[in-house]
């Protein structure tokens, strides 16, 4: 299996994540699209790890997962707090930082 296929697959997933980030108004969906982009990068790193027979890339994937978990915890806390204040997760309402 040529590695180009994995390249194109992860690029397609990354582009879909960008499209979702630009198209949706729900803050949680935008967060999920960011997770999708992170996973596309993870897939690419694992494919290169197989190509070069090197396990460092898999360690990087492990650290990306760690950072993603921490980011999701803090980000969802921020979204919950915003929802408690303005009762919406619509980014067109959240862009006014004063209530």
């Amino acid at each position: 299996m040529p590695i180009q296929y994995y390249l194109f697959l992860s690029m397609a997933l990354f582009s879909i994540g960008i499209m979702g980030t630009l198209m949706r108004r729900n803050a949680i969906i935008i967060f999920m699209c960011i997770e999708l982009m992170l996973n596309a990068v993870n897939l690419l790193l694992v494919a290169f790890s197989k190509m070069y027979v090197d396990s460092s890339a898999q360690i990087f994937v492990f650290f990306i997962m760690v950072v993603a978990a921490a980011e999701v915890a803090v980000g969802l806390a921020v979204i919950v707090m915003m929802h408690r204040k303005v009762h919406s997760v619509d980014i067109n309402i959240l862009n006014r930082l004063k209530h």
Binding site: Q4, I16, M19, A47
Partner: peptide, 23 residues
């Protein structure tokens, strides 16, 4: 949608002829 699709096309065109080994 156009922005995401154009990004996909640009990277595709840049990496289409990259000489990478077969897994």
């Amino acid at each position: 949608m156009i922005a995401g699709g154009v990004l996909f096309l640009v990277i595709l065109a840049a990496l289409r002829t990259a000489s990478l080994s077969v897994l």
